[in-house]
Amino acid sequence: MARTSEPIDPDAETEIDADDDALSWAGDDLRGGIDPLTRNRVNASRDGDPAASDPDAAPEPPRSLARTAATVLFAVLYLAVVVGWILSAQITGSPATDVFSQVAWQFGEFVAIVSGALWYLTVLTLTPDSRTRVRVGWFALGVGVLVPWPVLLAVLS
């Protein structure tokens, strides 16, 4: 539409290549000479990298092969912990006979089963920007605390 406001010069019009005319807009030069298609592509790629497009964004979390490997390794370990506690819950039983103790024991068994998943998710969500050593330390502490002893002792003895 901007072209309508420009004085029409028949001589100048013939000099411009027909394709160029169709694919460019008046004012493109003012925006750095980038045509709309390319400009959108550039913007899309910038959106994909928050650190580049948003100066206020949080600093890039530390990423390394070791960190990813540790996170995956502990995911497998914690899965084993959950399986261990599912098996442990079959072994353990409340020595008490009153209803409250039974219910409390069942609740304890249930949260013991989900303890591995809860600990893993907690460390995963609360250490996104922490150093790898800190994250691995919390993962390792959880594995140490949550060893499913009931099933291990039953298997070993």
Partner: peptide, 24 residues
Amino acid sequence: FPRALMLAAGLAATNAMFLSVVQW
């Protein structure tokens, strides 16, 4: 939310340790 998540993880770990202690 982070507070509740940590308290829940600690509660689950407490119960897991209790069952371990009883078995030991």
